[in-house]
Amino acid sequence: MAQQGTKIKRTKSTKAVKIVSYTVIALFSLICLLPFILIISASLSTEGVIAKEGFGILPKGLTLSAYMWVFRYPKMIIGSYVVTILMTVFGTIVGLLIISMTGYALQRKDFPFRNAISFFIYFTTLFSAGMAPTFIWISRYLNLRGSYLAVFLQLLMSPWLIILMKNFAKSVPFEITESGKIDGAGDFKIFISLILPMLKPALATVGLFLALGYWNEWYLSSLYLGSQVDFKPLQYYLYGIINEANALKGSVAGVNVTFSDLPSNTLKMATAVVATGPIIFLYPFVQKYFISGITVGAVKG
């Protein structure tokens, strides 16, 4: 009897936890989704209605004209796409390699300099030179202003990602490194052939952070690239469109249009959808690897 009682209690409690979980997650997901619906519906609305009534959940006066504007002269946005994709892909790969190497080395208990180096890296989050000195250094002395490299390099890694990686690597049992050593493999060989495959969940996590860092970048671009490059990274391009009515005109230059015909509100939103959309559609595919990477994780020891 008593045992049955606990069992009922247990299922009750478990059920309650489940119900709460489902409700909260569902609600939160909806809140996350809402602004997207607003943007998409705005991009499909007619300009006049939007200017008067603002955004709504459903498009007001369904039209595709804003998208037609975006794609009538797609050179700039396509160029931005290419730049951003290249930066994201290469930045993530190179960044991941360096971060994982460092993270692995820093958690090796037989590495005498691990604390010194860890502190050396962590210190940079505590004490930074600030905007103006950093800017002067990078543009005047490294001469990187106007080069995509200025943005690419600065986003390559962060102390936070290295320490995160270090902690993931900690959970890989030291015996694996030992067994490699017994086989006579060097540290680098051990890292590449034994450790790296076991770090999959960590690589997925850190890689996603890196990739998003590149994808969402606009601020460094505004400081270091300005108008000096032919194609601005996507989010910086979007920043210009959203903040400056003239940039919008620039984006459709080459199209025969008198400005007052230009659907500026809806065009902004359509540009936003086009600039954000594809990476979102990509996510479910990444997620498949991402989630399985995490759950398959060889962290069980």
Binding site: F135, I136, S139, G146, G226, S227, Y239, A247
Partner: peptide, 23 residues
Amino acid sequence: LFYIEWTDWQTQYNVQLLSGDSR
């Protein structure tokens, strides 16, 4: 021609001079 665009143009202009760009 080297353009300082209208988006945040004061910042862009100041920052350009600050950079000591010899180009």
